[in-house]
Design a protein around this nucleic acid. Sequence first.
DNA 1: CGCGATTTGTGCACGCCTTCACAAGCGCCT
DNA 2: AGGCGCTTGTGAAGGCGTGCACAAATCGCG
Lengths: 232, 232
Amino acid sequence: MSAFPDLPEATIARLPEYLRALHNLGEGGADTISSEGLAAAAGVNSAKLRKDLSHLGSYGTRGVGYDVTLLIEQIEYVLGLDQRRAVCLVGLGNLGHALAGYDGFASRGFKIVALFDADEAKVGEQIQGLVVRHIEELGRVAVEENIAIGVIATPARAAQAVADVLVDAGVTSILNFAPCVLSVPANVDVRKVDLAIELQILSFHEHRKASLTALPGGRSAAAAGNQEAVGS
Amino acid sequence: MSAFPDLPEATIARLPEYLRALHNLGEGGADTISSEGLAAAAGVNSAKLRKDLSHLGSYGTRGVGYDVTLLIEQIEYVLGLDQRRAVCLVGLGNLGHALAGYDGFASRGFKIVALFDADEAKVGEQIQGLVVRHIEELGRVAVEENIAIGVIATPARAAQAVADVLVDAGVTSILNFAPCVLSVPANVDVRKVDLAIELQILSFHEHRKASLTALPGGRSAAAAGNQEAVGS
DNA sequence: CGCGATTTGTGCACGCCTTCACAAGCGCCT
DNA sequence: AGGCGCTTGTGAAGGCGTGCACAAATCGCG
């Protein structure tokens, strides 16, 4: 109940992927799954997967594999998904709207309990059964609702101020979609998602590929045989 | 014009961050910037930044720093941002809508040139000056418009099929928002963004923090002094 | 009851990335 | 012209993560 195994950061980042794969397999009726099978479903190396899971303890059976249900429970426990955590969302522009309505959050146990925006025109608007409140209420509401995670979807110039308010209200985890660096105390975790950066990374690889193939005569016949997606 | 310096993947992932910081600094009127200053603006270690930049060549001046304009040009060249790449977006649900209207893409030189969806009800809809087309047109249009990058924002069950069509149409870079593993030929780059996974990672850290502080009497006075955001 | 097939858990080596520390280089001031 | 302070670029060391390969363990069957 305390003394957490200090998992490698890389492992933590993969656990949600394993979890998703396990849910798929479970719905497919699988009772147990081998490391090989699960690794394929999650898109990783089987040795890596075994090492990752071994950090949680021994929940597999040699010669058989892993019990799907048990492993799901175990990963969910480690990730703390057995306890619902209140999430608030700040900034209801284009992206914020989408996030407020994103199924993926609710379906994985995260409930957005409050929405905030600085724009008076947006305050009062109803989105997904929630009323948008003014940013000035953020501090008070965050404390009242015991919000643990804040999602920032504001323009970059507003993000730091929002983060400061969140931190003051006791929020200790922030998911930042604004393209800027946030400065927060050491005990606050920040994860950043920058959609444009992802495209720029892809752009680099395009550039590299284009510079390798001398003059390929344009797009040639693309490779065909793709097999084996996720279990469906 | 060929023979690319093979940059470490970790370096590539940081270049867009440096680029954003440089643009901010440039708008702030800065002419040159030291590695220390740029590192702070980008939220990284200065030694790491210098090593990253040294991989591109020597564009700094000892005793002075880096010429902001020159460095911007250089990074943009390496990332291939000097050439516009056509992007298409598949799936216009909640998230897809937001992505179609996301400023961050356009402002960094990426132009979405086509939208696709399988839902007849959505086909024909106008979004940001573009008409949503039926998914069956994807293959033809992707070739015609010479689309290099495809963005998948469909439900997970449809993602693999969409990826296959994109690949067949000659698309060699895919940004996948669907929570599933895509199987593609080796010459195609896939980057995955899973918003729910980010929350689950934060959840883990919340869980860990909660298990460490025995019973802290709830949220105590949060640390105050945050300083120095991005330049603004 | 024992054996073989199967699969987990892990010791080990390798490679990538980060970080420190410092020499080399550049500009400015006297 | 010379010296001094500042900053880059990089050699070297350390840490982290990955993947191989195999010993240990379990099940099923004869």
